[in-house]
């Protein structure tokens, strides 16, 4: 049972790490500011979700009432991030549109 919990937690944590790495690489490689928001806003959300899920699974080692409360508190962070991350992304996009940044398109590159 212990080894099973450990394997599950490690798998979740590594998935989250890969997703965070994807977000960071996406921020580096994408051509313009609007497409940079795609990896920044969403792969980070998925990364937080999977990593916190892995840590909550690790919590099952010492099962007690305090630990259950702690896990609920951790999922409160995830819930808040799921609400806040689209709002922050939308706010940045809105700022870009109002400031008049032109979106990068493929056709413009060919000309």
């Amino acid at each position: 049972m212990t080894i099973f919990i450990n394997i599950l937690a490690v798998a979740f944590l590594l998935t989250g790490l890969v997703s965070f790495l994807g977000g960071a690489v996406g921020i580096m490689r994408m051509p313009d500011f609007y497409s940079r928001l795609h990896p920044a806003g969403k792969l980070d959300t998925l990364g937080i979700f999977t990593m916190v899920a892995g840590l909550v699974i690790y919590n099952f080692h010492h099962l007690s009432f305090g630990m259950v409360l702690l896990s609920i508190k951790m999922f409160l962070i995830v819930f808040f991030v799921f609400l806040a991350s689209p709002t922050a992304t939308h706010s940045i996009v809105d700022a870009g549109m109002r400031a008049g940044l032109r979106p990068w398109t493929k056709k413009k590159e060919k000309e």
């Binding site: 890969v18 997703s19 994807g22 977000g23 690489v25 996406g26 490689r29 994408m30 051509p31 313009d32 609007y34 497409s35 795609h38 990896p39 969403k42 792969l43 959300t45 998925l46 979106p103 990068w104 398109t105 493929k106």
Partner: peptide, 23 residues
């Protein structure tokens, strides 16, 4: 979200990403 994220991960790590994306 989880299903669609793998598509984005594939895009990000693809070596010829600039030909694949089309914003």
């Amino acid at each position: 979200i989880i299903k669609a994220n793998f598509h984005l991960l594939f895009l990000v790590f693809h070596p010829r990403m600039h030909q694949l994306i089309d914003p």
